[in-house]
Design a protein around this nucleic acid. Sequence first.
DNA 1: GCTCCCTTGCAAATCGATTTGCAGTAACCG
DNA 2: CGGTTACTGCAAATCGATTTGCAAGGGAGC
Lengths: 335, 335
Amino acid sequence: MIRARRIADVAAVAGVSPTTVSHALSGKRAVSEATRERIMRAIEELDYRPNLVASGLRKQRTHTIALLVADIANPYYPAVARGVHDVVNADGYVILIGNTDGDGDAERSLAREMLARGVDGLIIQPMSSKPAELRSIVGPSFPLVVVSEVDQTMYADAVGTDDAVGIGAAVRHLAEAGIRDVGFISGPELQAPGPGPVRLAAFQAASSALGLPVRDDWIVHTTFTRDGGFSAGAALLALDERPRALLCANDLIAIGVLDAARAARLRVPEDLAVVGFDDIETADLVSPRLTTVMNPAADLGAACARALLRRIELGPDAPYERTTLHTRLVLRASA
Amino acid sequence: MIRARRIADVAAVAGVSPTTVSHALSGKRAVSEATRERIMRAIEELDYRPNLVASGLRKQRTHTIALLVADIANPYYPAVARGVHDVVNADGYVILIGNTDGDGDAERSLAREMLARGVDGLIIQPMSSKPAELRSIVGPSFPLVVVSEVDQTMYADAVGTDDAVGIGAAVRHLAEAGIRDVGFISGPELQAPGPGPVRLAAFQAASSALGLPVRDDWIVHTTFTRDGGFSAGAALLALDERPRALLCANDLIAIGVLDAARAARLRVPEDLAVVGFDDIETADLVSPRLTTVMNPAADLGAACARALLRRIELGPDAPYERTTLHTRLVLRASA
DNA sequence: GCTCCCTTGCAAATCGATTTGCAGTAACCG
DNA sequence: CGGTTACTGCAAATCGATTTGCAAGGGAGC
């Protein structure tokens, strides 16, 4: 087995010390043009690639960042991941990815797992952990970006979307169509500020602002999946008094509701209006095409990545910042 | 700033040497029950977590693997990634992910980038690089799993799907419905054995096996996207003699073809039958529901992960193995 | 010609965990 | 009671790159 090349091998071939090779590569100290030339030729010849594990140990910088999402197989997150990837890759970083399934223990243990591997920063959309907990896990000066609808700049840099704006537009749109009996299907019922509760609160706020009643029995929690939407939707549609419209905390739930409506032989939007959230690609492909709130996933990922790189560069003393991206209602056929 | 705890801190608190702490943790050498107890208490008290960068440097094992896909935002790959994730996570591994966009240079440079970070293995679905090239990059004894429709056990462990079986079933299905004029929309035209060319070849083989003509002007290449499918489909449908059915190298292309058919005011499947490949979730949601070849993405990811872990455990001397997963035709409404 | 500075290079310490060689103690046997 | 074995523990070397302290050599200035 051929051993990987070390910096010492390069130094030997070039006839200099490892120090000089390192300086030639990093530019931390001047190296004569002739020497640098010899070193570069040696590197070429040996196909030398610096060992980033050793370098990471010494420099305490691995050029690796961690991205923790609920479920990469959920259609919303890949776009986020891609946004992150493209921004950080351009700066020579690679991504360690983890799926938490929205579980608080998994979030915390994966965060620790990543930290132990010396990542330079962490991007996470916490579903069950509080930002303060995460901050205490990673330590006070570690680059941490949380995705959150509410301001978290007490604890970390934050990136989020103005979900309330999109939800408000959706409620207003329904009200203008004369629809007052609106239900809401949220995500799992959790303590921490995940997207479900935030969107639910926005729905309640928008409704009362318009003087619309909010019925507790028309507010249900389920998983962020098509199946979850189907069963929650079926339950609501089986009520004696059923809502005339359903707002859903994400598109998968909304698509499940479309299934449920079809199963209940209800016409959409005539009998039941359905509004989703996220505007995943599929939203434009289902029948009827889904009216939904557009959530800029790739932009969000890119913004997170930029916030993280900025923090890595600036160090821990600069004040935390929050970036807010905009949502908007996309009118299609389902409402 | 609070420094992270080192093994020396634990040793000091427990009143032993770092050696003993390491042995207590790894079990490589016996440690008396009393000592182990003290060490564990010290670890608890200090919230010590071993630095995996240092450990990785010494042991040459980072418990990190790399996964290189064409585009994580493409709906097929997240399922693969999830399958890989769940299998390796259970063994304490985390995943470094990279998007190659099917570009050969990106594949090779990302592979090197990952190697420099000391990953214990690499899973890749090469779109433009030959397995032999990849093997030469990673070195002869490095754990490498390639996803490929054709056997690659000359160079690496391989996992693939029997795409020809699914494509054959699709062609036969069309033939049985009396459809002989079939076109094929493949992926980008590349030298290496990506999924596009393989599926195209399977189509040609299946057609001639059934004595069906294959017209070159009904075979086109495009990107693996909905837009690609739309423009390629529109071009084919604008021909004077247009095909009666279109097989597509993936579902996104097929969905784009459905768009094109709608734009050309053709009925599907009456005027044009459309068959996709992959069976992504969206395939069941479009209108008409897409007939497609099911490609077991999560299973594929899991199989890759198992193959890689097996290779890591067995070492380089065991012969390369190939795992083949099965595709099958899913009949829905579009063909 | 002498001093001072600048350039360039090297030896050695460092990052944090692992592992090998060596040794001290206790227990056990005949 | 001498000798062997088993059990524990430590000091030091190691993984590979980076960085600091030191110094040699050459050139410039007076």
